[in-house]
């Protein structure tokens, strides 16, 4: 059976690419520290020697739209083109093409449906920065096949937080039951407190530093009980109007498992939103 060689949860800050590649007067003062943290984070994936990446993210009204909106969707295609005109325009993100692993996607779709997750699928999916940002930060060679899994954290009505946790647990079990000798890293990105298009946006810190502090602690300790006891669909409006993206972190806590402490924890307090990075090694920390 396949091995889950790493579980990784991260924010997906679309400004990283531009900040990390800019030079001279264009380079923001926080860029060097940010790059150093990302390079350390990247090493946690490299050390796990993955063959395939399961990538959990959320389409930001790019291909998925309100006339036909899935709650959870698996991409099953030989290739995925990536990034959109409005992401090039606003964030300077490059166009990319990533290979897909159709065999693992087929396995996840079949077993997800049989486990009562009515997963939608796409055979032609152009993915966006929720998946390409972690490729850029964690695997900039973009040389591994992926299985993208999109969640709806964006267009209400949304699934409740517990559903994200349960899907995360199911994804972990499905990867582990895949009849393959491949090493699979499961990577998901979301947000801590975040406000977009409202009065609390683009502040000196994220809109709710106290929520961010609690959230980092929940994730780092695998404290699903504490997190699920505190977080509801309604409560997520309070830290910032885009904070429902935190449910993708909850999904990744489900992948990592109840009570599993992360082997790598880091964060960076930036303007607008806090960055946070977590890696778990289900087999134990890899030795060089």
């Amino acid at each position: 059976m396949a091995t889950v060689c790493a579980v990784i949860a991260s924010t997906h800050h679309p400004f990283y690419y531009r900040a990390s590649t800019s030079t001279g007067a264009d380079r923001p003062p926080f860029a060097d520290e940010w790059v150093a943290k990302i390079e350390t984070f990247r090493e946690t994936l490299t050390k796990a020697r993955p063959d395939v990446l399961v990538m959990v993210g959320s389409d930001h009204f790019h291909q998925l739209w309100l006339d036909n909106m899935p709650q959870f969707l698996v991409g099953k295609a030989p290739y995925f083109d990536a990034n959109w005109y409005n992401e090039e325009r606003e964030f300077g993100l490059p166009r990319m093409t990533l290979a897909g692993d159709e065999e693992l996607a087929t396995h996840i779709l079949r077993n997800g449906l049989d486990a009562d997750f009515d997963l939608a699928f796409s055979n032609e999916l152009r993915i966006d920065h929720s998946i390409t940002c972690p490729i850029i930060t964690l695997r900039p060679e973009a040389d591994l096949p992926i299985v993208p899994i999109y969640t709806n954290i964006f267009a209400p009505p949304l699934p409740r937080p517990q559903r994200f946790v349960d899907l995360g647990k199911a994804i972990r079990a499905m990867v582990e039951s895949w009849p393959s000798d491949k090493r699979v890293a499961i990577i998901g990105t979301g947000h801590l407190s975040l406000e977009l298009g409202g009065p609390r946006q683009f502040g000196e810190h994220g809109p709710d530093p106290e929520f961010d502090r609690k959230a980092v602690e929940w994730i780092a300790n695998g404290d699903l009980e504490g997190c699920c006891g505190d977080v509801t669909l309604d409560s997520l409006h309070l830290p910032g109007n885009a904070t429902h993206g935190f449910m993708d972190f909850m999904l990744m806590m489900g992948v990592a498992g109840e009570g599993q402490k992360a082997d790598h924890v880091d964060s960076l307090d930036l303007f607008h939103t806090m960055e946070a990075y977590f890696t778990w090694y289900p087999e134990g920390v890899p030795t060089p």
Partner: peptide, 8 residues
């Protein structure tokens, strides 16, 4: 209106 769409 969806604030992400308006902002972008």
């Amino acid at each position: 209106a969806h604030p992400f769409l308006t902002l972008t």
